[in-house]
Design a protein around this nucleic acid. Structure first.
Length: 322
DNA sequence: TGACAGGGGGTGT
DNA sequence: ACACCCCCTGTC
């Protein structure tokens, strides 16, 4: 029998099961729709490559359903261990989803069936903060570009040869920089990473974090309200960014980030027109419960997919909506 | 194919 | 309510 290649690239491990099943669409929403900004789909190869911490991971979806992963052999032991935390493999997400109030909330039910199997990632706290400091008034492709530039210029290079398929897409596979590297770089070097007015915030945040050892770890360990208040002391961190960092980087699942998309859907589907974003967040936590963050993710992904505004809306509602 | 506005998943005043 | 900074995206 012809030896079919069982690893994506030389010196990478053979593909092995992740223990998680997702459709292609849900996988894309999980990896590349606003939770994380360091996943890239390699079209020619037909699989995803992503990074967090010092980990580099390839992820592919077998036609039969199960997800499989591979990583550089050098890191295999550590990465194998880190997977469980990053993908929250210990959480029964089907159960968490079922406990959301979809039975009495038809729109939520629609959003859930649009992204079956969706879950929340648990990314390293510090880098989640860095990524979301980049995110203000930026769209996902731009945020990905900013974080990639930060990694390339100030972060550590991978310990392995970068596969040609990655180099072709300008993926350096560098880790995101340490805060100390950002603080040492200074605002001007940061501006070179296309951060714009975010450069100053990121630089000041880095200096604060470097001069307060343990501050990040302590913040992550606090309960949601206290952790949020602490994060918001940082320049450039308001309600929305604090909520994102806590939801995707600290596992605070009651966090309910309110951005313009959520504002839109809450206005149209829940009648909260012209509500203050802070009140919308309060409503969200109240209405959706302890796992409001997961509900937010379902609403957000669906809203952004455009399905929400496809045919039917204008026509179906026309008589009364005027 | 290339130039050119418009506006962006927010924060802080 | 508006500046902040810059560049991606759509459009001509």
């Amino acid at each position: 029998m012809p030896p079919r290649s069982t690893a994506p690239w030389p010196e990478w491990t053979a593909w092995r099961p992740l223990g998680l099943e997702l459709s292609e669409g849900s996988l894309r929403l999980l990896l590349d729709d606003g939770q994380a900004f360091r996943w890239h789909f390699l079209k020619a190869e037909g699989f995803w490559v992503g990074l967090w911490g010092t980990h580099v991971l390839a992820l592919r979806l077998e036609p039969s359903g199960p997800l499989e992963w591979s990583c550089p052999e050098l890191n295999a032991a550590q990465t194998a261990q880190a997977l469980s935390s990053y993908f929250s493999l210990g959480v029964d997400w089907a159960e968490v989803t079922d406990a959301l109030p979809w039975r009495s909330d038809a729109h939520l039910a629609t959003c859930i069936s649009f992204a079956p199997g969706l879950r929340l990632l648990k990314q390293p706290f510090g880098e989640t903060l860095l990524c979301f400091l980049c995110s203000a008034t930026k769209q996902i492709p731009q945020i990905k570009q900013m974080t990639e530039l930060l990694a390339l210029q100030l972060g550590k290079a991978p310990r392995v040869v970068v596969p040609e398929a990655c180099r072709a897409l300008n993926l350096s596979l560098h880790a995101l920089p340490e805060w100390s590297a950002i603080a040492a770089a200074g605002e001007q070097d940061l501006r070179a990473c296309k951060l714009g007015f975010r450069a100053k915030n990121i630089f000041l945040a880095a200096r604060f974090i470097v001069s307060h050892p343990g501050w990040l770890e302590e913040t992550e360990a606090l309960e949601y309200p206290e952790a949020k208040a602490r994060l918001m002391q940082l320049p450039g961190v308001g309600e929305k960014i604090a909520d994102c960092v806590l939801l995707y980087g600290a596992g605070k699942r009651q966090s309910f980030p309110v951005d313009t998309w959520i504002l839109k859907v809450m206005a149209r589907r829940y009648g909260l027109e012209d509500w203050d974003p802070i009140l919308v967040a309060q409503f969200g936590r109240q209405h959706f419960g302890n796992d409001a963050g997961l509900a937010q993710q379902f609403l957000f992904n669906y809203e952004r997919s455009g399905s929400s505004s496809l045919p039917g809306r204008a026509r179906a509602q026309s008589p009364r909506s005027l």
